[in-house]
């Protein structure tokens, strides 16, 4: 499938995060560009996989500006200036973040939460209401619009959390293990949500982590393995990128899951086990 890349959307250079003396992640470098496919609006889907405790969640907190890097930088495209490749340092709130627990405001109903997410948008209250109604319909949340988070199912909470971030944060969305603990139906819902997001704008970029390697290979067009690097035959005690697979380059992105994908799964599992 032919594609090309244009503007840089995400630029991470020498990123390290330490808590006190403990370095959690170090020397993280990667670049993701806007993927262009003729006749298709194609957002970017980037997966991070790795064993538990390798620093995926810390990396996500750094990517979303929720934790300050000890060194290095995270730049995202500044789409507000209209200049190609204009970049800015990421700040909290620039990138949407949906955590593993699909955290919402416990005292706000679905509608109230979405209205809150739109509070800074320069549109009228009526326009906000129309937008909320449209999303509630599109994402199957109409019936639960007046319910509180503790009255929602896991899938409904997750969808609400995603819409909140879409309303508030623009083109980037980080999801920490969006598939964990979901049943087959909910997993399909998340996949549909990914499609909705990536099909709605060229710059929309989804970054997610998962322990389900098959799902990473099936959905992502770029996969990073986070693990402990081997230094002089010994495993270091900080996480970094130990392998990158560009599914576009090897011609497996945007294709149905097949035998070639299984081969990639094997490679990733091997990389994870050795790190």
């Amino acid at each position: 499938m032919t594609y090309s890349t244009e503007n840089t959307l995400l630029y991470v250079e020498d990123l390290s995060v330490s808590y006190g003396d403990k370095t959690v992640i170090k020397d993280i470098n990667f670049v993701e560009k806007d993927v262009i496919r003729t006749g298709n609006v194609t957002g970017q889907v980037i997966a991070f996989v790795g064993r538990s405790g390798r620093g995926k969640s810390t990396l996500f907190r750094a990517l979303t500006g929720l934790v300050k890097p000890s060194s290095g930088k995270v730049l995202i495209a500044d789409t507000t200036t209209g200049i190609d490749n204009d970049a800015k340092v990421v700040n909290e709130g620039d990138i949407g973040f949906v955590d593993q627990k699909y955290t919402l405001f416990r005292n706000k109903t679905v509608s109230q939460a979405l209205m809150f997410a739109l509070r800074n948008k320069e549109i009228t209250k009526e326009e906000k209401e129309v937008k909320i109604k449209e999303y509630l319909h599109q994402w199957g949340l109409e019936k639960v619009k007046d319910q509180y988070p503790n009255e929602l199912s896991g899938g409904q909470r997750q969808r609400t959390a995603i819409i909140e971030q879409i309303f508030c944060s623009g083109h980037y969305m980080v999801l920490d293990e969006p598939f964990s603990g979901l049943d087959v139906g909910n997993i399909q819902d998340v996949k549909d949500a990914f499609n909705l997001m990536t099909a709605s704008h060229e710059f929309n970029t989804i970054i997610y982590s998962t322990h389900d390697i098959e799902l990473a290979v099936e959905l992502a067009d770029s996969i990073y393995v986070i693990g402990y690097p081997s230094i002089e035959g010994k495993l270091a005690d900080y996480g970094t990128i130990v392998k990158h697979i560009d599914m576009k380059e090897i011609g497996l992105a945007w294709k149905d899951f097949g035998l070639d994908h299984m081969e990639v799964v094997k490679q990733i599992k091997a990389a994870m086990l050795s790190s």
């Binding site: 907190r61 979303t64 929720l66 909290e92 709130g93 990138i95 949407g96 973040f97 955590d99 627990k101 955290t103 919402l104 405001f105 416990r106 809150f116 997410a117 800074n120 959390a161 909140e164 971030q165 508030c168 944060s169």
Partner: peptide, 22 residues
């Protein structure tokens, strides 16, 4: 939980707004 503060911050809440909301 830290997640609740992070959630508010990810929705562009300033620190005083986080205190107020969460």
């Amino acid at each position: 939980p830290q997640e609740e503060f992070d959630h508010a911050r990810s929705l562009q809440c300033k620190r005083w707004e986080v205190l107020w909301e969460v």
